[in-house]
Amino acid sequence: MKIIIHGGFFSESGTDNATKVAKQQALLRIVKDSYDYLQFHSAVETVVYAVSLLEDDALFNAGIGSQIQSDGKIRMSASLMNGLTHKFSGVINLQDVKNPIQVAEVLMNVEDRVLSGEGANQFAREHGFEEFSTEIPQRKAEYEAKVKSNGQGTVGCVALDKNGNIAVATSTGGKGFEIVGRVSDSATVAGNYANAYCGVSLTGVGEDITSNATATKIVTRVTDGFTLEKAFEKTFEELKPYDGFAGAIAIDYKGNMYHKDSHPSMVFASFDGENEEVFG
């Protein structure tokens, strides 16, 4: 059993040392808590649990830490993929919900598994998700002062459970000040993908990640016999012609964990019950 999480790029929500330490501590706490949860739950349940904890922490650009768009509103996206069943579910531009990843989890059990905009909002209300404002004073101040972040903030989790099943979940609050209706990579298979061989979650500039189909390429290459490291190397090499901005975490079916970013530095933490790693 292994688990790895990411909290976007360090440039998101401040670059001072205090923020860096706080993010590291939060990631380490969440990854260990989620590993304990993994002992008695499936990979799918665990990635939802871990990403929900990340969404509940204002240090990260998801859930209550989400960025404000150009019209002054917050719209979030999240997705979930079960490597065992190959089912993918997600929400795009969801509003006024505390934990978008949990809405994606409910969608996993219906026929229309990816919803956007008002349809996603209505589905959330009909399934008991209460209206909740995710706007926090820091984001409001950034918006009013027109201080743009670099737009590399997302959270994600990949887990390998005791039965050898892999699942992945990714959630984002957007890049901030984007055009209304913009779709990020987080609710697509470019940013969140898994099968029986590998699971990958991305963070970075959504347009770059989508152009490269990054998560799907890595998983496909591992499925075709590449090592996890080689799959990452080849896929990230393909970002270079347009200086693509991306960071990724992954676990393969052998229990290997890997991470890579094209520009410093993605924040992440991993744990396997004995060894811990935190960076960023």
Rank of each mutant, 00 (worst) to 15 (best):
residue 250 A to G: 10
residue 213 A to V: 12
residue 270 S to N: 10
residue 42 S to M: 06
residue 235 T to Q: 06
residue 123 F to K: 03
residue 12 E to V: 15
residue 131 E to L: 13
residue 60 F to T: 05
residue 206 G to F: 00
residue 258 Y to M: 13
residue 31 V to H: 06
residue 136 I to V: 15
residue 84 L to T: 08
residue 230 K to I: 00
residue 47 V to P: 01
residue 237 E to C: 11
residue 36 D to L: 12
residue 173 G to V: 05
residue 219 V to Q: 10
residue 155 V to T: 14
residue 227 T to F: 12
residue 55 E to N: 09
residue 155 V to C: 11
residue 80 L to I: 12
residue 253 Y to Q: 14
residue 113 R to K: 15
residue 26 A to V: 04
residue 224 D to A: 14
residue 158 V to I: 06
residue 161 D to H: 03
residue 59 L to R: 13
residue 195 N to P: 09
residue 114 V to R: 00
residue 197 Y to N: 11
residue 160 L to M: 06
residue 73 K to I: 07
residue 115 L to E: 07
residue 238 E to C: 01
residue 259 H to W: 14
residue 195 N to S: 15
residue 223 T to P: 00
residue 129 F to C: 06
residue 161 D to L: 01
residue 274 E to W: 00
residue 271 F to R: 03
residue 88 F to I: 03
residue 165 N to K: 08
residue 134 T to F: 01
residue 23 K to Y: 03
residue 154 T to E: 04
residue 213 A to Q: 12
residue 270 S to G: 09
residue 108 M to L: 13
residue 74 I to V: 15
residue 38 L to A: 04
residue 148 K to V: 04
residue 159 A to S: 11
residue 122 Q to V: 13
residue 163 N to V: 00
residue 66 S to K: 02
residue 264 P to I: 01
residue 137 P to E: 08
residue 44 V to K: 05
residue 101 I to S: 03
residue 10 F to Y: 14
residue 277 E to Y: 11
residue 145 A to N: 14
residue 54 L to H: 05
residue 225 G to W: 07
residue 71 D to W: 11
residue 215 A to M: 08
residue 126 E to C: 09
residue 113 R to M: 00
residue 98 K to W: 07
residue 137 P to I: 06
residue 62 A to N: 04
residue 100 P to N: 11
residue 183 V to C: 09
residue 205 V to M: 14
residue 6 H to W: 05
residue 146 K to L: 12
residue 109 N to H: 15
residue 263 H to T: 15
residue 137 P to Q: 09
residue 50 A to K: 02
residue 212 N to Q: 12
residue 65 G to V: 05
residue 8 G to S: 10
residue 26 A to C: 09
residue 4 I to E: 01
residue 231 A to Q: 02
residue 78 A to N: 11
residue 72 G to F: 07
residue 76 M to C: 08
residue 98 K to Y: 11
residue 37 Y to I: 06
residue 50 A to R: 02
residue 41 H to K: 13
residue 147 V to N: 15
residue 186 S to F: 05
residue 32 K to F: 01
residue 60 F to W: 05
residue 49 Y to E: 06
residue 168 V to S: 03
residue 44 V to E: 00
residue 233 E to L: 09
residue 14 G to D: 09
residue 29 R to G: 11
residue 280 G to D: 07
residue 31 V to W: 02
residue 269 A to C: 12
residue 237 E to I: 10
residue 65 G to H: 03
residue 276 E to V: 15
residue 61 N to Q: 09
residue 31 V to P: 01
residue 191 G to F: 01
residue 130 E to L: 04
residue 159 A to L: 04
residue 131 E to S: 11
residue 107 L to I: 09
residue 264 P to Q: 07
residue 114 V to E: 02
residue 170 T to N: 10
residue 141 A to P: 00
residue 45 E to Q: 13
residue 71 D to H: 10
residue 83 G to R: 03
residue 155 V to D: 06
residue 161 D to Q: 04
residue 14 G to N: 08
residue 236 F to H: 08
residue 118 E to Y: 10
residue 264 P to T: 07
residue 77 S to V: 05
residue 54 L to F: 06
residue 67 Q to F: 13
residue 69 Q to F: 09
residue 196 A to C: 05
residue 216 T to P: 03
residue 3 I to F: 07
residue 154 T to C: 04
residue 269 A to N: 07
residue 280 G to N: 08
residue 194 A to F: 01
residue 277 E to Q: 12
residue 112 D to Q: 14
residue 273 G to N: 12
residue 272 D to R: 07
residue 277 E to V: 10
residue 69 Q to W: 11
residue 82 N to M: 01
residue 50 A to T: 07
residue 122 Q to L: 14
residue 182 R to C: 04
